[in-house]
Design a protein around this nucleic acid. Structure first.
Lengths: 175, 175
DNA sequence: AAATTATGTCAATATGACTGACATAAATTC
DNA sequence: GAATTTATGTCAGTCATATTGACATAATTT
């Protein structure tokens, strides 16, 4: 219930080690991401979906035709974790699977029109938040922010960032 | 297995709506945070702790003396979710509870020396990643990044960001 | 004295993740 | 052509983190 004097010593000793730690940005990243991800939750609840569904749908929409293996790499989860979520998205008609044209073992994933609509609806509030946050920022500021976030990603995983759908290929609707 | 023509139309139609969506920053935030949070996981595993423990320990360390209610507000979780994690941190000797001096119903939370050491060890790789990401950034860039992240937080929750321990008060070691 | 507040706790449940094992079909290698 | 590897799917069990709802206690406020 006391020990004020002894602690002061401990606190001082630790402060030296804490010097180099960038607590400011560590916390800002936490707070920013906390609220950034809170936006779509309300919409997802209407569909009985969670954040896992959001992540899957987002990347299927953004990289139509990506394979299950690619999706697992991007999300950094196991296939067992993906299984239920992906099945629910397929059953609900938001995502379709197509046998790979080159390698018929592969399953290419495509959003349906319904899936695209939901992906868009989920991205909208997040995009609005970003736009508002950049209100006062100039082009140079935006570039700096992008560079920083890109540099925060593991170097060996950075190729994932820019991967986009092969040009010319649209989505696929049905079976 | 086909439907290439029809889809093209759908894709074009949606592209118009997608115009305004800032997918670039949405994905950068996802990738940056994914890898940012992956750093401490290895250390946590040694202690049998998870990310929830990390978050609690971080804020107890950074805001020594904060109450249970304040912690719940910051983490945006329910007290039932906090209960087990907090109990484990207390049992393991990383956090101590002290009856509030003004309001004796409150429980002020403080890190022990052990807790501070662990909080620091967890912050270190994250701080290193941030430093590396800012390698090429100037002071103006850093300021822009901080402004952006701050602006991403819900306006009504922004006061949480700057809340820091009352000056003069150190940690508390034991009973 | 009554109401409210801060915290703790019990019980049940949901979500999202994990490991390990095994099955199938298709591609690759020998 | 047979054997191996690869991509995917699936079953079973488990764990971590979160939820809601209900109730208990002690201390503060009204």
């Amino acid at each position: 219930m006391n020990g004020q004097q002894a602690d002061e010593a401990v606190r001082t000793a630790l402060s030296a080690e804490e010097e180099g730690i960038d607590f400011a940005l560590i916390e800002l990243l936490f707070f920013a991401y906390r609220d950034f991800t809170s936006d779509p939750d309300v919409i997802l609840a209407d569909y009985g979906f969670g954040r896992a569904h959001h992540r899957v749908l987002h990347f299927v929409n953004r990289r139509p035709g990506l394979t299950v293996a690619e999706l697992l790499e991007v999300l950094r989860i196991t296939k067992q974790s993906l299984a239920r979520v992906l099945k629910q998205l397929i059953d609900a008609g938001h995502v379709v699977q197509v046998q790979g044209p080159r390698d018929r073992r592969q399953r290419e994933l495509y959003p349906t029109a319904k899936g695209r609509a939901l992906a868009l609806a989920l991205a909208l509030p997040q995009s609005r938040r970003i736009r508002a946050a950049l209100e006062e920022a100039g082009p140079a500021d935006r570039a700096a922010i992008e560079r920083f976030l890109k540099a925060m990603v593991d170097p060996d995983l950075r190729p994932q960032i820019d991967k986009r759908p092969r040009a010319g290929g649209g989505g696929r609707e049905g079976k």
